[in-house]
Design a protein around this nucleic acid. Structure first.
Length: 292
DNA sequence: TATACGTGGCA
DNA sequence: TTGCCAAGTAT
């Protein structure tokens, strides 16, 4: 009789068989490639990131290459990925890498965490996935898997708790290389099987030792997060206006912006917001463009 | 801690 | 069709 496989063995074996081939997971992928992917994947599905990531790395193979261009080019190349301030932050991070780290993506968590647009998750992810360092990586997928398998609840709490970080640390393999693979494996399990809406428990490698399944898959009963409104919001308006600037090679006249949003009050407010965020700049009395 | 911040695919 | 969702960060 062989001993039943451990939770870790099950998940690592599953990942070995089911991991998607993603460019930023290739052994030859640079730390910059990993970093770009992490920025793009914040709140954005893999399928939409793939083509933009490829074009980005082709055009800007290093942080220095991006840092040498106007931030507006980063916003333009970001395309319709959403949350364009991420493009601005990635550009600013590239400049910081050139200034503070000689153009090399830093490997230390604290140095990464200090870069614009890099929070707790992204710093840990870059350190773990690009440099194979031992860090607890807590993204929404990992948190959901832990909540179910180890916690017995359908969904994690709205924000990361101390208990979660401690739990993550307690199950993180000692060996750094194994720890990094463990993190991406749990993340992949959450993305492909232990999904938010329709979990594939029947094909889950740890389904028979999942606390949530054992409890009969009780529905989430925690605080309800209000769905984010979209139609008619300032956010939608900003998106419309920025799309006009992105798709134009030169300065855009106010009339071109007027054409994409009917409400003048909201339109002005959104434009002011874009200028405030440095996603757009005013270059004349009535003309605007992406930042230089 | 709650809120703002894009976008498009899918049920 | 409308609602929900997808590798968060900054304030």
């Amino acid at each position: 009789m062989t001993a039943p496989a451990t939770l870790h063995e099950r998940i690592l074996d599953w990942y070995d068989d089911h991991a998607r081939d993603l460019p930023w997971r290739e052994p030859s992928a640079s730390a910059w490639s990993v970093m770009v992917s992490e920025f793009m994947l914040q709140q954005t599905p893999v399928a939409r990131v793939l083509p933009v990531h490829e074009a980005w790395l082709e055009r800007w193979p290093t942080p220095a290459a991006l840092a040498a261009e106007p931030s507006g080019e980063a916003v333009r190349a970001w395309g319709r990925l959403g949350y364009p301030r991420r493009a601005l932050r990635l550009h600013a991070a590239a400049q910081a890498i050139v200034e503070r780290h000689g153009g090399e993506v830093p490997s230390a968590y604290d140095a990464l965490r200090a870069l614009p647009g890099v929070g707790d998750y992204t710093a840990a992810a870059i350190a773990a996935f690009a440099f194979r360092a031992r860090h607890v990586v807590l993204d929404t997928n990992v948190r959901r898997v832990f909540a179910r398998v180890l916690g017995g609840t359908e969904l994690p709490t709205p924000s990361v708790t101390k208990a979660e970080r401690e739990l993550g640390a307690s199950v993180l393999p000692e060996d750094p290389e194994t720890a990094a693979t463990w993190s991406v494996a749990v993340m992949e399990l959450g993305a492909l099987v232990c999904t938010a809406a329709k979990p594939g428990c029947a094909r889950c490698p740890v389904g028979d030792r999942c606390a949530w399944q054992a409890a009969g898959r009780p529905a989430y009963d925690g605080p309800v997060r209000r769905p984010q409104a979209w139609a008619g919001t300032d956010r939608q308006c900003r998106g419309r206006l920025l799309a006009v600037l992105r798709e134009s090679t030169g300065p855009v006249h106010r009339s071109a912006l007027d054409a994409v949003w009917p409400d003048p009050v909201q339109r002005e407010r959104a434009l002011a917001g874009l200028l405030e965020d440095r996603l757009a700049v005013q270059v004349g009395p009535d003309t605007f463009t992406l930042p230089g």
